[in-house]
Design a binder for these strands. Structure first.
Length: 256
DNA sequence: ATGGCTTAGTTCCTAAGA
């Protein structure tokens, strides 16, 4: 079972790339982020025609998450996170697919920091942790897949110096991520590549892709019962180098 | 090497991204 996290940076602009990916990689589940599209303008028919059932949590202009399943209909469990009723950002959707609970997560960027956007990011991590703890208590296989906007370790970026003032690498951001892991979650890509040096994002600016100046912010966290079924993890990096690519590459885990 | 790009909407500029 190949489960993918893919921040598409606009599903309308990325549709040819996404359909190509579904056809070539044939992933079983794809968690999408940054749809930048309201529910009524999503390319639902194109995804269905590619052989995928899908549930969506869109938003006009920015944010937006979805879960796609090959030859299956994801059974929706939850949209959004508890704790801030006035929060209207579409950043969380959760479903069950073939006995595995899957969440598609788009954690706030948090720049500039310090400031209200950074405060929102930290509160959002706490709200996610509350949900994650409840999921662990269910004692079922769970995959929390998404763009966490957190660079967990110094060896997860091309340059600590270039990123040192960025919200993605602040101690508070990392502490939130580590607290989540400490509940009992397994970081798939870190398990596969414990020495780091593996990127999932390359900026559009300053030739970042050409000089491999990237970092790792897309993560797939496994509950203990999912980790028992871990086969491998990786990044389908070549999709970042194609025409009209997203600035993120599809990042995946395989479970038995 | 991040002023220098890409996307979407309120378009011939602004906001947001990371």
């Amino acid at each position: 079972m190949k489960i993918v996290s893919y921040n598409v940076n606009g599903i309308k602009a990325r549709l040819p790339r996404l359909l190509e990916y579904l056809d070539e990689a044939k992933p079983d589940v794809v968690c999408l982020q940054e749809l930048k599209s309201s529910d009524d303008t999503l390319p639902v028919k194109d995804i269905e025609a590619a052989g995928y059932g899908a549930i969506w949590h869109g938003q006009k202009g920015f944010n937006g998450v979805a879960i796609l399943a090959r030859d299956a209909e994801p059974a929706e469990r939850q949209k959004g996170l508890a704790g801030e009723p006035e929060d209207e950002h579409s950043r969380y959707i959760e479903a069950e697919v073939n006995g595995v609970v899957i969440a598609s997560i788009y954690l706030p960027n948090g720049n500039p920091q310090p400031g209200p956007k950074f405060d929102y990011k930290l509160r959002w991590i706490d709200r996610l942790a509350t949900r994650a703890k409840a999921l662990l208590a269910e004692e079922v296989p769970v995959v929390l897949a998404g763009d966490y906007n957190v660079i967990p370790n110094d060896d997860d970026t091309f340059s600590v110096r270039a990123m040192q003032d960025d919200a993605l690498m602040q101690p508070e951001s990392r502490q939130g991520y580590r607290a989540l892991l400490a509940q009992g979650w397994t970081d798939s890509l870190r398990t596969q590549f414990p020495k780091g040096g593996v990127w999932t994002f390359w900026d559009y600016q300053a030739g970042a892709w050409q000089r491999d100046a990237g970092f790792r912010i897309d993560h797939l966290l496994l509950s203990p019962l999912a980790a028992d079924r871990f086969v491998g993890a990786g990044v389908d990096k070549d999709y970042r180098g194609r025409e009209k690519a997203s600035d993120h590459a599809p990042t995946w885990v395989k479970l038995r």
